[in-house]
Computed example of a mutant assay.
Amino acid sequence: MVQLPPDLVMLERGWLSSNSLLMLGDPRGAVIVDTGYCTHKAQTLALVRASLEPTRQTLRLIVNTHLHSDHCGGNAHLSAAFDGCAVWIPPGHFDAALDWDQQALSYAPTGQQCERFVPTRALQPGETLVQSDRAWQVLAAPGHDLHSVMLFDPESGLLMSADALWERGFGIVFPELDGDTGFDEVDRSLDLIESLDVRVVVPGHGRMFTDVASALTEARSRLAFFRRHPERHTRHAAKALLVFHMLDVGQCTRMELGAWLDQVRIHQVMWRLHFSDRPLDSWTDELLGELARAGALRLDGNTISVQ
């Protein structure tokens, strides 16, 4: 088991919500990095309050590594619960968040929810976030999201990698699904991580880990495979979209899922990208069958549910 210093607490709630890192030990109040998905907002607030209670502190700041719904869905609820505490986000989507442009923020194209919040200021790559005795370096980490950042504490060697590096890979490379470059950016973010003296990684999803070299090797192997077979990356992304939705709703009929998918632009974009040689519904059924055989979903007649 990886042990964090007493001033740091990782909150893990399953794959529907990103991990959060709660930074304590500062007389000004605590900082939380990423806040999970909105359907977990009450659980997130309860976990934060439980961690803060022994310290008699409040939450002074919310920081987001990027603005995907599973990383910032608790922003509004937490900010309201702690007297409208500040919210800092990466600069790339700052104006979109102010205007609440759900197309630019990816919520409408992916069919995902996020309660509106108001960012206080942009968190710029290259600056330092000081909390307690730690000086967290803000590092640009494009790839999974063009505007994503990581936080690194050189003293402890702790990296909050968001979705740039997991123990077994990295997050979906969304720019590639829209016809932009993304794999090269993933490669550069992995190079950056390798250049740091990282001793502990708090990833965006999954458990903390210390074997950074093995994680980087796994990520590079996965990246090389996706470069050779971009259609496999797209298929992986399409299945992840379906699983995320089913984790959110729990159970639905095939007709209800189809109605939802009709409103989800990215599902149709992925189909056109590599799989339009077959009807869209047939491709969707293929994906559902693969997920059922893998044990991720249960298909019972017309009913779909999570395992």
Rank of each mutant, 00 (worst) to 15 (best):
A292Y: 04
A81M: 15
T55I: 05
C72L: 02
R278P: 00
Q43V: 15
Q131E: 07
L287A: 04
S161F: 08
T253A: 08
H77C: 15
R121K: 13
C38D: 12
D145H: 06
D153W: 01
E290H: 05
G143Q: 02
I89G: 04
R134K: 05
A240T: 07
P230T: 07
T120C: 06
L129K: 06
M270W: 04
G206W: 03
W100D: 14
F152S: 02
F82V: 01
F209D: 03
R188T: 08
R121N: 13
A237T: 09
M255A: 12
F226A: 11
T181M: 06
I172D: 00
R272A: 15
D277I: 09
P91F: 14
S18G: 09
P203V: 13
G295A: 15
D83V: 13
L287Y: 03
D184F: 02
V138I: 08
E155H: 04
G157D: 09
W88N: 01
C114F: 08
D197L: 12
L52P: 00
G111M: 02
A97H: 06
D184E: 09
Q251Y: 08
L247A: 11
M208E: 15
C85A: 11
R272F: 15
G204M: 09
H229T: 11
V87K: 00
H267M: 13
C252P: 00
P230D: 07
A76P: 00
L24S: 12
R60C: 08
D26L: 10
E231H: 07
A238D: 11
V138N: 00
G92L: 08
S195V: 13
Q103H: 11
A96V: 09
F209E: 02
A238N: 04
F225R: 12
E176Q: 07
E155S: 05
F152H: 02
D285V: 10
E115Y: 04
L16E: 01
S221L: 12
T181S: 10
D248Y: 02
R199H: 15
M246S: 07
P5H: 02
S305V: 09
D184L: 05
L24I: 10
Q103I: 15
V87T: 02
S148K: 01
V33N: 07
W136H: 11
